[in-house]
Design a protein around this nucleic acid. Structure first.
Length: 336
DNA sequence: GCACAGGTAGATT
DNA sequence: AATCTACCTGTG
């Protein structure tokens, strides 16, 4: 199979080495896990990546461009493999973008070789991007962490929280400050002082039972009304999201845009990150800036930019968007 | 104190 | 159909 898991510890252990079929390292790894396409991965102080998606909770340690040491706190290797979308050749996909005739795109590709679009459960993508409206990534992560800690189901029993890693003494402790830790100064909702449990994001069924006030308490602000509205809508329509994910792109997008709080941009994010539709081309303020400043499309409106993107970048426009976004964020962090 | 943040929806021109 | 504006709230 694409990606094999070789156990490196005892029978009960959850630690494995993930052999990637396609290289994922350096800036591409960081940008894939923490570049605004998902909001539950974070870089720990020891250099490991800790994250949750669906039923997966994992700590990843890069060993080589094609090897990740993966400690699974919850979920299966197959789940992790699917989340990382290692069955697709992301270098080949990037090479299929029009970088030979687009110098700026070529620059972005060279800066983040191997950048991926992760596969997230569509319901989680919808929830996260409903929270994203006019918020910075740090704050979206905060909201999502609170939603999981207060309203999500525990993913692993408390005793399961210390991974056994037998090739080093006592390493693995850091796996425990995982995920539901929401930073200093945030008293409520957490497990006081003790080892944090790993929680999944609440399902939409679970969210239907959460009051708008409780959602606001998770720092959602006006987005709480949108989340509550979507929860009410979906509660009466089991399978609606999954059916939507299976529809052709245009039809799926039309359905999503009908949800409260979901416009063109969020619908495209849900389809790109939650339904594997690489043709979806979300147009946000960053992309608007990129197109104005680097493609000379000053004054174009979002709908025009979206059309340009689909035509210019083609069926993998969403991947191009992620590269452009990554480059622009890096430029913003390090001017000059 | 004030603008701004990976937007959306409803009102106004 | 293009252009405002309110909507929440943490951060600089």
């Amino acid at each position: 199979m694409a990606l094999s898991f070789r156990r490196i510890s005892s029978v009960r252990s959850v630690s494995s080495v993930v052999h990637l079929q396609h290289p994922l390292a350096g800036p591409a790894l960081a940008e894939t896990l923490d570049g605004g396409q998902c909001f539950r991965w974070r870089l720990a102080e020891d250099g490991s990546w800790q994250g949750v998606s669906g039923q997966v909770a994992a700590t990843l340690r890069p060993r080589s461009p094609t090897e990740l040491e993966a400690t699974l706190h919850a979920g299966t290797p197959a789940d992790l493999r699917a989340h990382l979308a290692d069955d697709l050749d992301w270098h080949a996909l990037a090479d299929a973008l029009p970088h030979r005739t687009d110098g700026h795109l070529a620059t972005c590709l060279a800066a983040f070789p191997g950048l991926r679009i992760l596969r997230q459960p569509i319901g989680e993508a919808l929830l996260c991007f409903l929270c994203s409206a006019t918020k910075q990534i740090v704050q979206i992560k905060q909201m999502v962490a609170l939603l999981a800690a207060r309203h999500g189901r525990p993913l692993a029993p408390p005793g399961h929280c210390h991974p056994i890693v037998d090739n080093a003494r006592g390493r693995g402790r850091e796996g425990c400050q995982l995920l539901d830790d929401i930073g200093p100064g945030d008293a409520a909702g957490g497990t006081p002082g003790g080892a944090a449990e790993v929680h999944a994001l609440p399902t939409w069924e679970e969210l239907a039972g959460v009051s708008e006030q409780a959602l606001r308490a998770c720092l959602l602000g006006f987005r709480a009304r949108h989340v509550a509205g979507v929860a009410r809508f979906l509660a009466e329509r089991p399978g609606w999201l999954e059916e939507t994910a299976a529809l052709p792109y245009a039809e799926a997008k039309t359905r999503l845009v009908g949800l409260p709080g979901v416009g063109e941009k969020i619908a495209d994010c849900v389809l790109l990150f939650g339904a594997g539709r690489l043709e979806a081309f979300p147009v946000d303020v960053w992309i608007l800036r990129v197109m104005a400043q680097r493609y000379g499309l000053e004054g174009w409106r979002p709908a025009q930019i979206a059309h340009f993107g689909r035509v210019h970048f083609g069926p993998l426009a969403g991947l191009a968007q992620q590269y452009l976004f990554a480059w622009e964020r890096q430029a913003a962090r390090r001017p000059g």
